[in-house]
Amino acid sequence: MLTETQIANGRSAIKTALWQGIKAEIPITIGVIPFGMIYGVLGLSAGLTPPQAQAMSSIVFAGSAQFLGAQLIGVGTPLPILWLTTFIVNLRHVLYSTALGPDIQHLSRKWRWLLAYLLTDEAYAATAVHYGNRQIPLAHKHYFWLGAGFTLWGVWQVSTAVGILLGTQVPPEWGLDFTLALTFIGIVVPTLKDRPNTMAALTAGLVAVLTFNWPYKLGLMVATLTGIAVGVWLENRKRSISADFAD
Rank of each mutant, 00 (worst) to 15 (best):
L18N: 04
T86A: 13
L165S: 14
P190I: 05
T29K: 00
F150T: 15
L100N: 09
P34V: 07
P215W: 04
N9S: 12
D194I: 02
L48Q: 02
T98P: 00
G101H: 03
G47D: 04
P78W: 03
V209G: 01
L202N: 05
I26M: 13
R134W: 00
I136L: 12
S12I: 01
D121H: 05
T203C: 11
G231V: 05
R11I: 13
P190K: 05
R239F: 10
W214T: 12
L182E: 00
E173D: 12
A17E: 12
A139Q: 11
T203W: 02
I33Y: 02
E25Q: 15
A13C: 08
A53L: 05
A243R: 13
T29S: 03
A243T: 10
N213S: 15
L192M: 11
L138R: 14
F61T: 03
S45H: 12
T127C: 08
L152N: 06
I28M: 11
A139V: 07
M56S: 05
L68Y: 01
P196Y: 07
G21Q: 02
T211A: 15
V89A: 11
V155T: 07
Q71D: 05
Y216K: 10
A181P: 04
V75Y: 09
A208L: 07
G10S: 12
M1L: 09
P102N: 04
W83N: 08
K15A: 15
W153N: 08
L107G: 06
A126S: 13
T85C: 12
F67V: 04
R11L: 15
G147S: 06
W145P: 06
F87W: 10
E4V: 06
S242H: 07
H142R: 00
M199D: 01
W145A: 09
S57L: 08
G101K: 05
M221R: 08
G227A: 03
L44Q: 03
L218C: 14
G163E: 01
N9I: 05
A70K: 02
A128G: 00
F245R: 13
L18D: 02
L138C: 07
T211R: 09
T86Y: 11
V89F: 06
I136P: 04
R134P: 04
F144I: 01
